[in-house]
């Protein structure tokens, strides 16, 4: 008799589903994942749901409603290992822009009294313990497969906290800031995307959030020297991981309002 396969659940909170799609887009590897793990609860892929508890939960999205703040606790209780995936789950996502403005609901909805949401969008780890946080907007397929493979063989995932610059230079790319004068968030952003924007001669947008020791102040000063306005610096830090503390603070420091 063989041992039963570990079970996998995929959960969605406030998000665009792009990170779950990264899993679905694995295609060939998805079959391999299904060979090693029992996909027990993944509504985006199958309407068949097996009851928990689960060995591994992948959690996408941020907490934006009182209901979700409750639901994440139930997910945590049912999960032996909980891994958050993507910018929403790890920092609050683009919807965390609401954290920095007044109540927007009356501007958007005709009857805002029916909207039951929290004032802020927050990361999963601010509510329950996350055993591993996988960054990205969206997450990268290779990093996701690496985390799952590492989990299956009981080893530490090879996911590093250093800058995008290191993977950019490993890929043999020339620095877009130095060679083109293009402002780039690479030096303060965590690696993992494969330096995809510099590969197309664009500056990094910071989708993977702050790297391990981000010197945002020094980078912002360099952006200003390259001709970026304070507003441009403010906006650059206020995107997909706006609520991540180092980016939040740097955006605040360049807030013209």
């Amino acid at each position: 008799m063989t041992t039963p396969k570990p079970t996998l659940a995929v959960w969605k909170f406030a998000s665009c589903d792009g990170c779950q799609l990264t899993l679905l887009n694995c295609e060939d590897e998805l079959l391999q994942i299904a060979g090693q793990l029992q996909i027990a609860n993944f509504p985006e892929a199958s309407s068949q749901v097996i009851e928990g508890p689960y060995d591994v939960s992948l959690v996408e999205g941020s907490i934006t409603t009182p209901g979700d703040a409750e639901r994440i606790r139930r997910v945590r209780r049912q999960s032996r290992i909980l891994i958050t995936i993507g910018a929403c789950a790890t920092s609050g996502g683009i919807q965390a822009l609401r954290n920095f403005s007044g109540d927007l609901a009356p501007l958007v909805y005709a009857s805002p009294q029916y909207i039951d949401s929290l004032r802020t969008s927050t990361a999963i780890a601010e509510h329950v313990q996350a055993d591993f946080e996988l960054r990205g907007c969206p997450i990268g397929k290779h990093q996701l497969l690496e985390v799952i493979a590492a989990l299956l063989s009981h080893r530490r995932p090879n996911v590093r906290g250093h800058s995008v610059c290191i993977e950019c230079k490993r890929a043999g790319l020339s620095c877009v800031m130095v060679a083109h004068g293009t402002p780039c968030l690479g030096p303060v952003t965590q690696a993992g995307c494969g330096a995809i924007c510099p590969a197309y001669h664009r500056g990094c947008y910071g989708c993977f959030g702050p790297m391990e020791t981000p010197n945002t102040k020094a980078l912002a000063a360099r952006w200003r020297e390259l001709g970026a306005t304070d507003q441009a610096v403010h906006r650059a830090f206020r995107t997909f991981t706006a609520a991540a503390e180092p980016f939040r603070k740097e955006a605040d420091a360049h807030d013209a309002r």
């Binding site: 800058s163 610059c165 290191i166 690479g186 303060v188 790297m211 010197n215 020094a218 980078l219």
Partner: peptide, 10 residues
Amino acid sequence: RCLTCGNCTM
């Protein structure tokens, strides 16, 4: 001033 980005070493 150092970004600790690692470009110098690369």
